[in-house]
């Protein structure tokens, strides 16, 4: 916001309006996440933030990132949040007023200030990546995908593959853990599912 206010003369009017609208979505959504008492409302408000960020990406000509933002964050991660909220039955207004962590608020404030400082520092200086953060398309065309693919499959191939391996490990261990817990755990305990299980065994 400070950055925008400084160079306000250099920005075209439509860009400014889009930015302000999207920023409103982002900040409003973020406030909603912490203000709403109902966890589902908080999650919905988080989606608003995600869409606002996607609009900001589009405004910076990063269309691919915008699409990925919606697909991954709005489409997958918040859906998982909602799944957990709905299935664990925490979808009621929180009754307790007491805070379990005493130092929660001061800590959050401190971390927030550090994060803000970091963002401002990264926007102003070049020491992190060696290049100034830009608000113009990278490369000469609109083709985001080519630029990203070249970077990922040449310069950053090793980190990319390492991430892929990490994800595969996570998936496999997740499947293994889920399966081990399932086996024989609740056949006797829960009469409702015991029926279901017997039927399935018979079908086989």
């Amino acid at each position: 916001m400070i950055y925008g206010a400084i160079s306000i003369a250099g920005i075209a009017k439509p860009d400014l309006i889009t930015f302000l609208a999207a920023a409103l979505l982002v900040v409003g959504g973020a406030f909603g996440v912490i203000i709403f008492r109902n966890p589902v409302h908080s999650a919905l408000s988080l989606i608003t933030t995600m869409f606002g960020i996607a609009v900001l990406f589009i405004e910076q000509q990063a269309q691919f990132l915008a699409a990925v933002q919606i697909i991954v964050y709005a489409g997958a991660i918040v859906v998982l949040f909602l799944f957990v909220i709905m299935l664990l039955g925490v979808d009621r207004k929180e009754a307790f007023k007491a805070e379990t962590l005493k130092a929660q608020r001061p800590l959050a404030l401190a971390v927030g200030i550090i994060a803000l400082g970091e963002v401002l520092l990264l926007a102003r200086t070049t020491w992190a990546t060696g290049a100034k953060s830009s608000n113009a398309p990278v490369g000469n065309s609109y083709d985001n995908v080519t630029v990203i693919a070249r970077a990922v499959f040449s310069t950053y191939l090793l980190p990319f593959e390492a991430t892929a391996v990490l994800l595969v490990i996570a998936v496999i261990s997740g499947v293994y853990l889920a399966k081990r817990v399932q086996l024989g755990a609740d056949v006797e305990r829960d009469p409702g599912t015991a029926n279901l299980r017997d039927n399935e065994v018979i079908e086989r």
Partner: peptide
Amino acid sequence: PPMGILFLLA
């Protein structure tokens, strides 16, 4: 849009 078919997935 340049993101084209990704919009469908989104």
